[in-house]
């Protein structure tokens, strides 16, 4: 029994955790870029862009996460099959990352919108007066200050994202939850297996919260 855990099942759980982390990390990066774009569009964008961004948030926030995941997975399969003319089984990893990134962005967009709006107007004016381009003013002056304000909310979303990766077990990607369910079937010790999985989630989310706390302290440099 102990040998099985060490050699086979333990390893399987670790692989599950690694897959979970990879999905979360890629979704976090993609979702953040998309979220900042949405937030920026809502503040600076022309009307059509602004309304599209608002509509996006309303739709993604109003539909259950699981349905978003199914829609992207099956919708992606149908679309690729149509385009290529033969049946394509869409990559679970890609579909999972895309779905989670889209969901993440819908919430992150509003966090960034709020944070950008809180940076005093005088900062943009000073940047412009110094001759900085709108692009440089945004990336060098506004975004770093907005980032500090966004960080607490953003950290929360990142923790939620890590736990949401468990949802993509439904499309067959063997992340931590899926691995746990396979192992608990094989060992018939569901309580033990899921407890171990829960502890792994807890360890990872704790490390991430700790990281965000430190990032928060760092980003407050220079602010009295």
């Amino acid at each position: 029994m102990t040998m099985d855990w060490l050699s086979g099942y333990g390893l399987q759980l670790i692989f599950g955790a690694v897959t979970m982390l990879s999905v979360a990390l890629v979704a976090l990066v993609v979702g953040t870029v998309l979220g900042i774009s949405l937030g920026t569009a809502k503040i600076y964008g022309a009307k059509p862009l602004r309304y599209s961004a608002e509509a996006y948030t309303a739709v993604v926030r109003g539909v259950p996460d699981l349905i978003v995941i199914y829609l992207i997975y099956f919708g992606g399969t149908v679309a690729l099959t149509k385009i290529t003319g033969q049946y394509v089984d869409i990559n679970g990893f890609a579909a999972g990352v895309a779905a989670l990134a889209f969901i993440f962005a819908a919430y992150a967009g509003d966090i960034f919108r709020g944070a950008i709006g809180q940076v005093p107007r005088g900062q943009t004016e000073a940047a412009h007066a110094l001759g900085l381009s709108p692009r440089a003013a945004f990336f060098r002056i506004i975004l770093p200050q907005a980032w500090r304000l966004a960080l607490p909310g953003f950290g929360n979303l990142a923790i939620i994202l890590i736990k949401q990766t468990s949802l993509i077990s439904v499309i067959g990607l063997e992340e931590l939850l899926r691995a746990s369910s396979v192992i608990s079937g094989a060992t018939r010790q569901p309580f033990l297996v899921y407890s171990v999985a829960a502890i792994l989630y807890l360890i990872i989310t704790s490390i991430v919260s700790w990281g965000f706390r430190n990032a928060g302290i760092r980003s407050n440099r220079g602010f009295a």
Partner: peptide, 12 residues
């Protein structure tokens, strides 16, 4: 060049 009433230095 411009100098503002509220300084507007970049705090970060």
């Amino acid at each position: 060049g411009m100098v503002f009433q509220s300084f507007n230095l970049f705090p970060h």
